[in-house]
Design a protein around this nucleic acid. Structure first.
Lengths: 199, 199
DNA sequence: GTGGCTGACATACGTGGCGTATGCAATGTG
DNA sequence: CACATTGCATACGCCACGTATGTCAGCCAC
């Protein structure tokens, strides 16, 4: 029983966050009962309020965890690319794929903004947008793309990818839909390039 | 007292929708009490359930009304433009401006997708996206832009504009933010053009 | 026009879920 | 070895949604 106090706390928090992730992903934030998800974690609402303050706090914690995971996955993809531009495109495609995962889409992109407001204001500073911003800055520094405001452009791009993801997820034929989106996105992104090339 | 039965119904529905618009815009969907908003309309929850079935039904009706209004405003702007491309750009800028209005942002773009799911699946078939799609199709037919899938591209563009709007609305300096977004958007959109021109 | 019927709306009630206040037991500290 | 602290449970009140039921006004047959 080497369970120190601190370990028990992180374990409890972890169990609550996991249960919340499952519940929010399955039924959405509003329809998820705190009694139910705490019970599934083998705890009660008392523990939840102790650690997270309220239901919104729990959602924040869940989103922060998911955001970290997304960031880690994107980092790998960027590191693997041969050029910055390729990395940027790969990152964007990967972002779409992640947005298609029901858990991410439901929690981070549908309920998150509705409950917590603009993602850029979240405590978990939305690492994905930061990542995209860094990619854009690098492309500008390299002289690959035009000089644009990185934050504005990043927000445009992330928004585009998210909007498209929502559509893909609900399309009759998601496979072709995602191909069409990829094609359209590359076209749009090429508008940022300094040297012109027709696709 | 020329109030026929049908007139009273539409008036009642109108009063409820108006009260709901105000409440949803001010406090958000989840925090709006149906007792409160019906009382403000001089009615009770009975009327609301009779006409709209449930709270979601009321939100649908509100969104349908707002969507119609947005569509009407965009139509005017498109009609005023001298070229199709200019109309497309003007339409997009106008869309951003509308997305900045708190009522539209809160109800249609934050709570709407969270409560009702993907906008393209809404009963009010999201007239704005249709409008953008038509503009894109015209540009393709004219030979102005590349041949891309109109629906996918429309979703990308609307998503981009929405994401940017959320950012602008919460920026410290919304004025410069919107200028930076406009610049970035034009750059991205130029990626669709067939004949290359550097901005 | 009058009696029945339909439909618009109000009232009353049950249920469930959130937040808070309180209690308890186990751990860390002097 | 007291005692404060803290992680978590239990108990309670409240609010809001949905539904079941009631009522009253307008429309139709005759």
């Amino acid at each position: 029983m080497a369970q120190k106090r601190a370990d028990m706390i992180t374990e409890t928090r972890g169990k609550l966050i996991k249960a919340a992730r499952d519940a929010f992903a399955a039924k959405g934030y509003a329809e998820s009962s705190m009694d139910d998800l705490t019970a599934k974690a083998g705890l009660t609402r008392g523990a939840l309020y102790h650690h997270f303050g309220d239901k919104k706090g729990l959602l924040q914690a869940v989103i922060a965890q998911i955001d970290e995971e997304m960031m880690a996955r994107l980092s790998v993809i960027i590191a693997q690319a041969s050029t910055t531009w390729d990395g940027f495109i790969d990152e964007s495609i990967a972002y779409i794929k992640m947005s298609l995962e029901p858990e991410i889409q439901r929690i981070v992109f549908l309920d998150g903004p509705s409950v917590l407001g603009d993602p850029s204001q979240w405590p978990s500073q939305n690492a994905c947008i930061r990542s995209t911003q860094r990619s854009i800055q690098k492309l500008i520094d390299e002289g690959t793309i035009r000089t644009v405001n990185t934050e504005a452009t990043a927000r445009l791009i992330m928004g585009a990818l998210l909007g498209a993801s929502l559509w893909i997820a609900n399309a009759e034929d998601p496979q072709t839909a995602s191909e069409q989106v990829a094609e359209g996105f590359v076209a749009l992104a090429s508008g940022l390039l300094l040297e012109n090339k027709t696709a």
